[in-house]
Structure formats: structure tokens, C-alpha cells
Amino acid sequence: MTSLYPLFKERGTGNGFFKLLELSTGLRFIPFACGRSAMVSGLKALGLQRTDEILVPPFLGQCVLSALSRAVFPAMSPSGRSRAILVYHQFGFPQDIRAIESYAHDKNLTILNDCANTLFSCTNGNSLLEWGDFTIISLSKLYSCGLGGGLYSRRKDIYENILDDHRELSDGQRERADLALETLIKINSGVYGAETVYEINGLYGYLPDVAAFPEKSHYGLPSTEEELHDDITHRKNIWSIVSNLFPDRVPECENIEVIPFAIPIFGDPEKLKVISNKIRNELSLDVPVLHFDFARNMLNPDYRQSLVIGCHDGWDEGLVVKICEIIKGHIK
């Protein structure tokens, strides 16, 4: 069953991805075991305490909320203890960064720029990665590397503080990071059977504390400019197919360029569930029904239940056309 997330697959030739990313974006990311460990490291570098609050959007995964709680207290409503705001660009669609930045400035909030679902989306011609006080990425959401994330900050004080700690931590955690990836590969292969849930909980429990980047994860990442460009083109093509067929059911993208992780198509929730099951049974593809903020503004969201189509290289463009044909047959 093909899902929204790519499974581990060796494809590259070495550990050149972060250099490739720097050449493409001009930004030098610090490698981490996952996006959540990068997130925790960034929040701690800011000097935040667990009694401080970070504003978060609804529908964040339990593993993200658990990771955040290592450094701060996640909250959905502002209070006198609010010190930061997590801005999650869901499925790679940029949030309304002008409105959120203005709010954060007025409230003196640090901006955690969560780019777990995109590396190359832009808003008003500017890379989304450069926004906020610090940016985290989650490579395993986009590529078949299993694990792997990173952190960048344009603030020199944050970046150098994290970099110094990261060097020391990584040296002592490389074996743990490699073991984490091996465990994940086994989980995805189904070898744990009824014990799978416990293995997942155990893995996700300690990953936010692991700074080191798993060595084997490098081999699941693009290793050339051509591979990187091909992935971007593939995601753009899927977005073009879906947005042309359902222009009134996908997010509006004025003044933004989207290189998506996934694409939401909203509709009647009950019909969407029927369609999702039909696609699963006929095409062996997991097109789930999830909530997406069509306002793209966590301060004033418009969540609608939507079918979500994946965009990684396991989603063949021909299959996406078949998915859209099934959807067309049920949504007028």
C-alpha cells in the first residue's frame, strides 16, 4: 500500500545532500536525526522553559506535541505565558506569513518555521526556508531516507549556539541514530507483528533527543542536482494535474509557488470516505481524509475535510490521473 510518506529506499551515492541543499538555497542546515529533534534543539537554544507556552495549530500529530513538551508547553490559545508560535506549512502550502509575522511581532513571540512538508515552496518570490527565527525540515517526509531532519537560523546567536552543542551530541549518538533507522526499517517491514505499536512508541519516544543524522539515511536522499530537480518537477506536475481538474476544490495559491508534500481536495466528508475506500481497494493507494486549513492562516483557519493525494516518487503521475477520474465520478 503506497502512503503519503515514502518508505526507506537506498538511491543516492553518499552524504552530499546537505551540500546540495546549500548550493540550491544558499542556506547551511545543521543535520539532525529528525525534524522533531531539530525542533527541540532550537527551542532549548532560545532559553525557553517548560512553563513557557508555544502556540500551535490544531491537528498536529501526537509525536510532535510530545516532542515540543520536552522544551515548552504546547497551547492553542494565547496567554501571558506565550513565548513562541509554531507555524506549520501544511502539505507544503505556505501559511499567511505576513499576518502571522505581524501578530508575532505585536506579541513578542519567537517564530518556529516548520517546513517539514516542503523545502522549495516560495511566497512573494522568497524562499519559505528563510522566514522566522529558526526553520526545521523533515527530510523523511519528502524522500525515501527513513529518518533525517535539519535546522537553519538566520539569527547568528541561535545558529552558533545550536551548532556548538550539536557537534558534541552527535559524536556520542551516532550508534543510537543508526539503530533508530534500523528499527524503523524493521517496523515498516512488519517483522514485529503485534508488538509493532510498542516499537513505534519506543522509537518516537527517544528520537527527539537524538541529534546525530543516521549514516544510512544519506543514501535515501537525492545526491545530484538532476535528482533534486526531477523530484521538484514531479511534485509540480502532480499539483498541475490535480489543480487543473479541481480548481475550485484545492487551495488558492495567489502570490505563492507550491512544491507540495501532498494535495488536499475538499468535499462532502461522507462522500470523501467512500472515495478513499474505493481508491484503496482498486489502486492500493492510501488517499486519506484529513483536515486542511484552506485559509492558510493558523490565526483564523478554515479547516475542511479533504482527500489528500501524495506527491513523492511512489505516486506515479498516471496513477494520480486514475485517482482523479475516480474522484470526478463521485464529486460533481
Rank of each mutant, 00 (worst) to 15 (best):
L4K: 02
P6H: 13
K9A: 13
G12F: 01
T13S: 09
F17Y: 13
L23K: 12
S24Y: 01
R28E: 15
P31M: 13
F32P: 05
A33G: 14
G35E: 04
R36L: 02
R36I: 02
S37Y: 02
A38S: 07
V40M: 03
V40E: 05
L43K: 11
K44C: 07
A45E: 11
L48F: 14
L48W: 04
D52R: 08
E53V: 04
V56P: 01
P58K: 02
L60S: 10
C63Q: 12
V72L: 02
F73P: 00
P74Q: 00
P78I: 05
R83M: 04
V87A: 04
Y88K: 14
Q90K: 07
Q90P: 00
F91E: 08
G92D: 08
G92L: 09
F93P: 05
P94F: 10
Q95Y: 01
D96T: 06
R98A: 12
Y103P: 00
H105S: 05
D106Q: 11
T110L: 06
L112T: 05
F120Y: 06
F120A: 08
C122F: 01
T123K: 09
T123N: 07
G125H: 02
N126I: 13
F134V: 11
T135S: 12
I137Y: 02
S138T: 11
G146H: 06
G146S: 07
Y152W: 08
S153M: 03
R155N: 06
I158L: 02
I162P: 00
E168A: 13
Q173R: 09
R174T: 12
E175S: 15
A177S: 03
A177D: 01
L181I: 03
L184A: 05
I185R: 08
N188S: 13
V191F: 01
A194M: 14
E199M: 11
N201K: 07
G202I: 06
G202H: 07
G202N: 13
L203D: 05
P208C: 10
A212D: 10
H218S: 15
H218R: 12
H218F: 10
L221G: 13
L221H: 11
S223Q: 06
E225V: 09
L228R: 10
D231K: 03
I232W: 02
T233Y: 11
R235T: 10
K236Q: 15
S240E: 15
S240V: 04
L245A: 14
L245D: 09
P247E: 14
P247S: 14
P251I: 10
P251L: 10
E254W: 02
E254A: 12
N255Y: 05
I256F: 01
E257L: 09
V258F: 00
F261T: 10
P264T: 10
I265A: 13
E270R: 15
E270T: 12
K271Y: 04
K271A: 07
I275A: 06
I275D: 03
N277M: 03
K278C: 08
R280P: 00
E282H: 06
S284P: 01
L285K: 07
L285N: 07
V289H: 03
H291V: 11
F294Y: 12
R296Y: 01
M298G: 01
L299V: 06
Y303A: 14
S306L: 09
S306W: 05
V308W: 06
I309G: 09
G310T: 03
D313R: 15
W315I: 08
G318I: 05
V320S: 10
V321E: 15
K322L: 14
I323V: 14
C324V: 07
I327L: 08
I327F: 03
K328H: 07
G329T: 03
G329A: 08
I331L: 15
